[in-house]
Design a binder for these strands. Sequence first.
DNA 1: ACCTCCAAACGAACACTGTTCGCTAACATA
DNA 2: TATGTTAGCGAACAGTGTTCGTTTGGAGGT
Lengths: 211, 211
Amino acid sequence: MGRPKTPLLSLARMASAALDIVDTDGLDGLSMRRLATVLGVQVASLYNHVRNKDELLHEIGNQIMSQVDVTGFRDGDWREGIATWARSYRAALRAHPNMVPFLATGPGRRETALQRANAVHGGLVASGWPPRQATLIGASTKYLVVGAAMTSFGRGFDDDVQVYVDRYPHLGQAHKLRAHADEIDDEAFELALLSFLDGLERRFTELREAR
Amino acid sequence: MGRPKTPLLSLARMASAALDIVDTDGLDGLSMRRLATVLGVQVASLYNHVRNKDELLHEIGNQIMSQVDVTGFRDGDWREGIATWARSYRAALRAHPNMVPFLATGPGRRETALQRANAVHGGLVASGWPPRQATLIGASTKYLVVGAAMTSFGRGFDDDVQVYVDRYPHLGQAHKLRAHADEIDDEAFELALLSFLDGLERRFTELREAR
DNA sequence: ACCTCCAAACGAACACTGTTCGCTAACATA
DNA sequence: TATGTTAGCGAACAGTGTTCGTTTGGAGGT
């Protein structure tokens, strides 16, 4: 067949179609052959635009991560900065639950991720946190977001939701279950985030008083 | 060949050998054929003891999760209860980093996990937390542990560690990098856990004063 | 205008995966 | 002693990611 007049494929088109498949049929649902079929093309052609399946997934990951907002540190309010970062981070993951296992497992070498980490670190230091503490806080916050994403919309129902439902069987109507899970999930994340921030605030004032 | 005089296989032996493979060569390194070879047996034989590869992984998961300690709630100290639970939970995951992606992704229907969740919930309620709050706290804590496990020993180096190292290039000697990453990881987890507990404590006293 | 080189499609194959089938031989039970 | 279950085996199936060699369109240089 040879080279077509206008290219049939592009990295962007591939990533977009692949993400569609992952969103609807899960990470396991994505195979190179299936992606090729969707794009109306043969498998081998894909490898003209991508070295690996892994590279394709990383491309998708970059797109998703670009939604994360680290502008909250602008006016030197570290509390606000962390909060908007954490919430937008979580929202980005929630938008594509099936990608969470890959995003969480993936190496920290993702370009965009490193850039965000840098912004967060800089923002914290600018607000008065010592560099070392800034690093720790950045890591801790990420733990929270990734953990929340993994255990809740990473897969089916949560143990804790299950326990809650078991103890309140009158809530057990199947059609309400999902809604309650989401509600509990949101509240648990907010509780964790705000409690964590309160704890940090206490440490922050202690640190300022010490000098 | 027919049935041997003494069984060559057992679920325990399979799970143990499989865990060895995963520990040394990662989750992808485990294939049924390879497991069979290690056990000196043919592939098909494995399926006499296990319905699925997934079932095998769940068996391993149960073994790991049985190491988690929820006895800290005994004397009504919820703070101590959460702390020992979270730390032992994290330790169990750290012992087998390559299993973390599976354990975190896996359904919450794991028997042992559900049992632990119940113990935690009960302990918190017994210490004076309202049931709903107890559920949220249980979920939040799990977020923290799973997140910490995923992003640090789930794979390679952390973004934040990278940022830290970039800013302090004199620490960049390769042989010290891993040690520093571990150190930062430990500290970040402790910071997150203790800050979170502090935040909870504040809420707890507010809640007691309100009545 | 010719020649060359690269890009982007294809078809066919390779090595690998999880899983199922039918077969055989030993043990347990009635 | 007969019967059924258990636990091995060998071969096969459908599916996976990836690579190879081939074909052809188009861009750039002489």
